[in-house]
Design a protein around this nucleic acid. Sequence first.
DNA 1: GAAAATATGGAGATCATCTCCATTTGTCAA
DNA 2: TTGACAAATGGAGATGATCTCCATATTTTC
Lengths: 189, 189
Amino acid sequence: MTADKPLRADARRNRDVLIAKAREVFDSGGFFDLRFDDFARLAGVGTGTLYRHFPTREALAEAVYHGEVAALCARARQLQATLPAAEALATFLRGMVDHIDAHEGLARTLATLWADRSGALAEGSRALEHAVTDLVAAAVRDGGVRDDVDAGAVMMALHGIGAAHDRPNWRAEADDLITLVLDGLRRPQ
Amino acid sequence: MTADKPLRADARRNRDVLIAKAREVFDSGGFFDLRFDDFARLAGVGTGTLYRHFPTREALAEAVYHGEVAALCARARQLQATLPAAEALATFLRGMVDHIDAHEGLARTLATLWADRSGALAEGSRALEHAVTDLVAAAVRDGGVRDDVDAGAVMMALHGIGAAHDRPNWRAEADDLITLVLDGLRRPQ
DNA sequence: GAAAATATGGAGATCATCTCCATTTGTCAA
DNA sequence: TTGACAAATGGAGATGATCTCCATATTTTC
């Protein structure tokens, strides 16, 4: 989807180092505590280079999690292909909670990408939403799920889960919210 | 609850002007776009005075919406006193969506206060959560609502709704999420 | 291998946030 | 009233993060 402009060799190399270093920081949970300029130092490049490749912190976060989000989407497609639709949806949503739980940084990232008011809705965010919409639509077609609610409602719930990641009782509450959503989605009767 | 230290006359006056001006900005939706220092200029006080009264933007936001949140909590109590518990809960949640819809700024504020990682959970946020917890507990006691989910899940849903306020189809999605939560909460059988 | 195109880096401009304290204003006891 | 003490003020400037600019370096192309 992104117009593939052939990137010069050194440019690609720097970009990759930046993403790799950012991922390390990300996984250690300190992504949002670090000065943005410091990512340049860490990667051994100038700040100008950092800013050329990633105009904002969010752009860098998105690049870091581009693969992650792609994997989530692939998983959604795979579940959809191998399970009854309603079950695929349930498994995917439960898996999202697991995933967010396991990856400290992802929760904040999703919340940030999502809340990003910068107009240009991040690619990853859109892809994820697309996957969820598909899962819901399939479940509706299949008859297990009511057809009178917008898939966006499910995204909102996921957003709430991601954004509230620092609540003391997060895991239990997140699981419960998914339960509520899934039970609420079940076709009445 | 807050230790009432008698505030000097000029201090109180300045504080009130600050809140009043902030509310104007708030209602016009630009609260988070304005430089914090500018609130001082708007109110005709020095930045030092601004910072003494409100150490952070969030503190000011909370002061602005202190009354608002108090009103929401009062409404919760009133509903609880006059309606069957399950209905009170439903009415309150629907009302929250109405309220957020009507007040541009409130959505962002709630999301911000809520996401506030500053440790000291804002008073307003805690009060609101308390009200919701009460409503859910009453509905559980009443038998209309299942007892195996945490009220925090409902807060998460509200958080998602508030934080996603800029989605194109926000209103419909928010209503749908409330529907899901309420239907999901209904005691099976 | 030379010219053109592309990318670099890091000094310093810019900008919001926040602090500090010499001065002003309010309070209260005498 | 008034004097003395406490409380509050304001705004200049410190701080520190973000971002720009462009002379130089590297890569690609022909």
